[in-house]
């Protein structure tokens, strides 16, 4: 089935429109972050302007963003690591022993509105004097990461032939030994997919940190609001802050594109 020339011209035109509408707003955001606030208000300087890094100076020095970057990295990393430790063996059990009902309970977490958990959490964790600390932030982010990891890894283990483990049993390994030495090493692509996606979701999470973080433990999505005042907005600073939040994750996405796509579409085509 070779596409006709007419279709090719149409497809190229359509794709240019699609790509432009997806990328142009992001380019505009980065451009505004490199302008002074005077230039942002001047429509004549929309595309031609003298770039400045002043806004990034404000973000990183005055607004204490280095601290918030470290917070975000730490919370996302810890939530992902802990969720992998809990989630990968659970997904293995649920896949091999066909525990569909148990799996459903874990996956419920994807459906429940986060607000309904926040009030009880806030009560319990403030009694434990944990609100504002990293512990509660990491736990709350695991609420997003763990179901995601179980979901992706179950699909992965479903597709991993059981014969490999049976062969290891014949060779004298225990079941747990076979999981550790045969299954886990073969699951590295699946674990990478689940881990990367969990990291991104945690990095982007806003609502839990909004309620549960303190002034020192704020993550980046919450810190963005420091640039929105009641009366006015520091647009240059705000756009530099949004660029600092989004650019790293977009650059990472370029390199691990394959994993992100397979994670986001996991289980979608099983019907």
């Amino acid at each position: 089935m070779r596409p006709s020339t007419g279709f090719k011209v149409f497809r190229t035109t359509a794709l240019i429109v699609v790509v432009t509408s997806l990328v142009a707003p992001l380019v505009w955001m980065v451009a505004a972050s490199l302008k002074t606030n005077v230039d942002i208000y001047d429509s004549a300087k929309a595309l031609v302007f003298t770039p400045t890094l002043d806004n990034y100076g404000t973000v990183l020095q005055q607004a204490n963003y280095v601290q918030f970057i470290v917070n975000s990295l730490w919370v996302a990393f810890a939530a992902t690591a802990l969720s992998l430790v809990l989630g990968v063996p659970a997904a293995y059990s649920m896949s091999r022993f066909n525990m569909r009902k148990s799996a459903l309970v874990v996956l419920m977490a994807r459906v429940i509105p986060g607000v309904s958990l926040l009030v009880p959490w806030y009560y319990v964790f403030s009694n434990l004097r944990m609100v504002g600390g990293f512990g509660v932030l990491i736990l709350s982010h695991m609420f997003v990461s763990l179901p995601l990891i179980v979901y992706i890894m179950m699909g992965f283990f479903d597709g991993l032939p059981e014969e490999l483990e049976e062969a290891a049993l014949v060779d004298g390994l225990t079941h747990i030994g076979a999981f550790r030495r045969i299954t886990l090493p073969l699951s590295v692509p699946g674990i990478a997919t689940a881990g990367i996606l969990s990291f991104i979701f945690s990095w982007n999470n806003f609502m839990f940190a909004l309620v549960l973080s303190g002034a020192d433990t704020k993550t980046l999505p919450v810190a963005i609001f420091d640039f929105v005042g009641y009366a006015s907005i520091d647009w240059g600073g705000l756009m530099a802050a949004t660029t600092v939040v989004t650019l790293p994750i977009m650059v990472i996405a370029l390199f691990v594109q394959k994993y992100i796509v397979s994670g986001l579409t996991a289980g979608a085509t099983k019907g």
Binding site: P221, L238, V245, T246, M250, A253
Partner: peptide, 20 residues
């Protein structure tokens, strides 16, 4: 790649970007 970019961007940051 272009299709992946909006997907991985932080939703709060996306909101601020469109606000401008």
């Amino acid at each position: 790649v272009a299709i992946l970019l909006p997907l991985v961007a932080t939703p709060v940051a996306v909101g601020m970007m469109w606000r401008l």
